[in-house]
C-alpha cells in the first residue's frame, strides 16, 4: 500500500512493462524464442529458407536465425515496404522467405506490398508479425488489435494465430511447406508452453478439440487458448464443465470441426486476442449463418476502440481477456 499526498491509501500501480516483456504468468513453464529456434533448425535441412527483418530482428526472435545463418539473414532497415517487396522478389527466385516486423507495420503500413507483390502471385512468403492484438502496453501505435480484420480480406493468405511455444515450433515447418503466403501472429521472447499437457498437435488448417466439456464450448485462438484452458480449470470449481476448441488457423477456417462443436445446447463462447470486429468471432458467426445454424455465441475479445496504454495485466483485466474476466463473463451468462 502506498500513502499519497492527500493521505489516502491505494494499491501501487503496475507499470507499463518494457517491450520485451513476456505475457507469461509468474512461474509458468516457458520456452525461449521458439520461433527463432524453429526457423534456424528448419534452415539446417531446407536451403531455401531465408530470414528478413525491418530493424526488429531482436524483437521478433529473428536474431536467433540471423546468428545461426548469418549469410541467409537480410537486414532491410526500418523500411517495411522494402521488406515485403524484397521478400516477394526472393520468393520469385525460389527461396522461402520469413519476413518479420511488428504486426501493426505489416498490416497497416505494408498492406499494398503484401497484397500485390506476395498474395496476388501466391508466393511462398511467410509474414511474421510481432505484438499481435494486445501484447504490449505501448498503446495503439504498437497494438495490432485489428490485424486479422485487415488481412482476412486478402485472397490466398493463410492466417495463423498460435497459442504457445509448441504451436510455434510445429507451425514453422508447415508454414514453409505451404505453397502460398502466410501470416503468423508471433509470440516472442519467453513464450508459455501450454499445449504439451494435452493430446494435441498443430496441423495447418485444422481446429482441435483440446478439452471436452458438457456445459460450455470455448472456441479460441492465439494466446486466448491458454486463457481459455486456465478459465476452464477455474470454472470447474464452479461446477461448470467447459470444452475448449483451439482454432489456430483463422483462414482458411476449419468450419467442420468448430461448427460441429457449437451446434449443441452448450453455451458457445469465442475468445480472441483481437477486436471483436472482423476476427475469430465474426469468422465463426458467418460460418454459422451460412449453414443456417441458429446459436447464440458470446464474443470475448477486444472492444472496437483504440486501447489504453499501461501494464498488460491491467489491460487484459480491463478489456476482458484475463482468466478472472473470462470466468466472470461465463458465470454471468450461465446465471
Amino acid at each position: 500500500m502506498t500513502t499519497v499526498k492527500d493521505g489516502a491509501v491505494r494499491a501501487p500501480r503496475l507499470k507499463t512493462s518494457a517491450m520485451i516483456a513476456s505475457f507469461a504468468d509468474p512461474g509458468q513453464k516457458t520456452a525461449p524464442a521458439p520461433f527463432g529456434h524453429a526457423l534456424a533448425a528448419l534452415a539446417e535441412t531446407d536451403p531455401r529458407i531465408v530470414g528478413l527483418s525491418a530493424d526488429l530482428s531482436k524483437y521478433t526472435d529473428m536474431h536467433v536465425f540471423a546468428k545461426a545463418h548469418p549469410d541467409r539473414f537480410f537486414q532491410m532497415g526500418m523500411a517495411e515496404q522494402l521488406l515485403f517487396g524484397t521478400a516477394a522478389g526472393m520468393a520469385e527466385t525460389g527461396l522461402v522467405p520469413f519476413a518479420s516486423t511488428y504486426s501493426v507495420f505489416a498490416a497497416r503500413r505494408a498492406y499494398d506490398f503484401i497484397c500485390l507483390d506476395i498474395a496476388e502471385p501466391n508466393l511462398n512468403v511467410n509474414i511474421v508479425g510481432g505484438l499481435p492484438g494486445l501484447t504490449t502496453g505501448y498503446g495503439p501505435s504498437h497494438q495490432a488489435t485489428e490485424d486479422v480484420a485487415i488481412f482476412r480480406g486478402m485472397p490466398n493468405l493463410t492466417i495463423v494465430d498460435p497459442c504457445d511455444s509448441l504451436d510455434l515450433e510445429q507451425a514453422v515447418p508447415q508454414l514453409a511447406a505451404h505453397d502460398g503466403p502466410t501470416y503468423l501472429r508471433l509470440l516472442r521472447g519467453n513464450v508459455p508452453t501450454v499445449l504439451d499437457e494435452y493430446d494435441y498437435e498443430f496441423e495447418l488448417g485444422k481446429a482441435k478439440v483440446v478439452r471436452p466439456g458438457n456445459d460450455a464450448v470455448f472456441v479460441s485462438s492465439g494466446l486466448m487458448t491458454m486463457r481459455a484452458l486456465q478459465a476452464a480449470e477455474a470454472l470447474a470449481a464452479h461446477k461448470v464443465d467447459v470444452a475448449v476448441v483451439h482454432a489456430p488457423t483463422l483462414k482458411p477456417f476449419d468450419e467442420e470441426t468448430v461448427l460441429a462443436e457449437l451446434d449443441t445446447p452448450r453455451l458457445g463462447v469465442t475468445l480472441e486476442n483481437h477486436t471483436v470486429v472482423g476476427g475469430l468471432f465474426e469468422t465463426v458467426a458467418s460460418a454459422l449463418v451460412r449453414r443456417g445454424i441458429t446459436r447464440r455465441v458470446v464474443p470475448i475479445g477486444l472492444p472496437d476502440a483504440f486501447l489504453d496504454a499501461g501494464a498488460l495485466p491491467t489491460l487484459h483485466d480491463r478489456y476482458g481477456l484475463s482468466k478472472a474476466a473470462i470466468v466472470d463473463t461465463v458465470l454471468g451468462e450461465l446465471r
Partner: peptide
C-alpha cells in the same frame, strides 16, 4: 500471371524496385 515474359505485376506504382532488390539478392545468394 497473364503474360509470358512479364516478370512481375506492376501497376501499383513504386513496387517494382522493391521486388527487384529481392530478386537481385535471391539471384546472388544462389
Amino acid at each position: 500471371s497473364y503474360t509470358p515474359g512479364m516478370e512481375i505485376s506492376g501497376g501499383s506504382l513504386g513496387h517494382g524496385l522493391t521486388v527487384a532488390v529481392g530478386i537481385a539478392l535471391g539471384l546472388r545468394l544462389q
